[in-house]
Amino acid sequence: MGEGYRKRQYPKYFVNKISDADMENTETQISLDFAESCGYIEPELNTKLRKKSEEVGGLLNHMIHHPEKYRRKSSGS
């Protein structure tokens, strides 16, 4: 995610990297479900962490659909 954010002046590159971060976030949700099903974490913790992950996903989704809002401001203006 940091790599994409530092390159936000290039919208296509930015969206590509943020999309990668969104996929990683989805993998995290799958890992949480796996951890719960194996008894490593309690269902309540999975729910709490999944909610946080869904919040992150919402933010990433906004960045993907509105990359212009995250464009670096030029220092010369």
Rank of each mutant, 00 (worst) to 15 (best):
M1N: 13
G2I: 02
G2V: 04
Y5S: 09
Q9F: 12
Q9E: 07
K12T: 12
F14I: 00
V15S: 01
K17I: 01
K17C: 05
I18F: 01
S19D: 13
S19N: 14
D20Y: 15
D20M: 15
D20T: 14
A21H: 00
M23K: 13
E24S: 13
N25T: 13
N25F: 09
T26Q: 04
E27P: 13
E27Y: 12
T28E: 10
T28M: 04
I30V: 04
I30R: 10
S31V: 14
L32Q: 03
C38Y: 13
G39E: 02
I41E: 05
P43S: 08
E44H: 03
E44V: 14
L45N: 02
L45P: 08
L45Q: 10
T47I: 09
T47N: 10
K48N: 01
K48P: 04
K48L: 11
K48I: 09
K48Y: 04
R50K: 11
R50N: 12
K51G: 06
K52H: 09
K52R: 10
V56F: 03
G58N: 04
N61A: 11
M63G: 01
I64T: 10
H65G: 01
H66I: 05
H66G: 03
E68K: 15
R71A: 08
R71T: 01
K73E: 08
S74E: 06
S74D: 06
S75L: 15
S77D: 00
